[in-house]
Nucleic acid binder design. Structure first.
Lengths: 261, 261
DNA sequence: AAGTGGTCTAGACCACCGT
DNA sequence: CGGTGGTCTAGACCACTTT
């Protein structure tokens, strides 16, 4: 005999708005509510990167949903790369690693399409008021304090990248050269480890420019050589703009790779 | 009393290889087998683009899986954009539309980040043997017949794109100017409608070049102006290379937009 | 052996769409 | 109204990892 399932009191997970019969305000499905609730706890840092989450039956119980519904939420979080599930081990909050950062946030390849980890050298690091353009990109007031880094990067020994990075100072207290010295590559690992900021998403706008002055010198190309300029804005898990990065790439021996699917 | 579920005879969906106890050859999960089987039928054209699929219970029955498992496969196919499910209506094989193509395969935006549908004008259309570079990009023998199109495109009235498109002639029998005339924009809609070829995936490699000769003229820029060159290869549902497209973009008023997440 | 996530099933009921 | 996909639940069993 199949037990009549107790009718869920249409309560939703939190204070979900009651569906009005006349307007089309549909309450989100339970699995979506569970997903967002877990995502928020991760964004808040309730569970630190690398930490193990409670077992699924317990999470289901806490959230008041069935195991199947909870699993649907977990699958979505895994697709969003917020968690990693490993059979027999448990579920863990995703931690940024060089490999992850390289895979997801680095799009530069050699002419054969292969990806290599770049090496970096800092040229300059200071804290200064935001110029209008940086302020706009980071949705800050003009003049807000920004940590600003200039660095060059080389791939397989050949310098092909110069970039300028701007960070809201209030999000990265104590950010300075010494912090950078110990790990100048894969900054996103450093952001997470030292400042608790996980980059979740970024957007890049590309244009073609001509190499000028110091950039031409650093890249070892003639004045006027065409370069790709990549203007990136990055958001953290909570949806805050946390970085603006302007990268200039010499495409003599490298390409910017973009997958469309 | 809960009926003891009849043990599935470990048969898999087709002739799935038996798992050997010593080597790590795991048979794919049922839902993955179902997904691939359905994907293959769609790629083969058993169900045409826009056609309605059989109802889920029937598909589950045909494939010999439970409704829940079938739904998991369908959800994956929907994420891959091979099908579209509409509550109360049914499930349909995804059909290419201008909007879809624009959304998924067009990455060029104006300085405010807005996307506009471009207009196109064909400059040249002929069938000729493949040059080495095109042959390599399309994995064809050098000298294989290619349909080749050159066209300009304008966004919001200003010409900012010139591109060259190469198609394996054997995949597009009868492709010629007249075919193009009736729909010169959103070629992927045409590929699907007139040649049964659905572009499923593409890859773009970007470099910076200097505008030269006719390109500079068409784009209305000075010789040497930096442009972005986009070298795209496109694959169809069956994984065949079906198009190579080399696009040159004037980035004075436009950007190439790339989302990382 | 104990504990974890992974797979698969079965079925009730809801929401939407067309007739 | 009948048919479709969408949500949610419940539970058995499998596979993997650690102790």
């Amino acid at each position: 005999m199949t037990a009549r399932p107790r009718r869920r009191a249409a309560k939703g997970l939190a204070a979900a708005p009651r569906p009005s019969p006349l307007v089309a305000v549909r309450r989100a499905p339970l699995y979506a509510q569970a997903e967002e609730m877990l995502a928020q706890r991760i964004a808040e840092g309730l569970w630190q990167p690398g930490a193990m989450l409670p077992p699924e039956p317990m999470l289901a119980e806490v959230l008041g949903v069935s195991p199947g519904t909870l699993r649907k939420a977990m699958a979505a979080l895994e697709r969003r790369r917020l968690i990693e599930r490993r059979q027999g081990r448990g579920t863990f909050v995703a931690a940024e690693t060089s490999e992850r950062a390289l895979f997801h946030f680095f799009r530069i390849v050699d002419l054969e399409g292969r990806k290599h980890a770049p090496t970096s050298y800092v040229l300059d690091c200071r804290t200064a008021p935001a110029a209008a353009e940086d302020a706009a990109a980071l949705a800050l007031a003009e003049g807000a304090a920004l940590h600003q880094v200039r660095r060059g990067r080389a791939i397989a020994g050949s310098p092909c990248i110069v970039e300028r990075i701007a960070l809201p100072a209030w999000l990265f207290p104590g950010f300075a050269l010494p912090v950078l010295r110990e790990m100048t590559d894969e900054l996103y690992v450093l952001y997470q480890r030292d400042f608790g900021i996980t980059v979740a998403r970024a957007e890049e706008r590309l244009s073609a420019i001509a190499a000028r002055g110091p950039d031409a010198l650093l890249l070892g190309v003639a004045e006027g050589t065409p370069l790709i300029e990549i203007d990136r804005t990055a958001w953290d898990l909570a949806g805050r703009r946390v970085e603006r990065r302007v990268t200039r790439l010499n495409t003599a021996a490298h390409r910017y790779l973009s997958a469309l699917d």
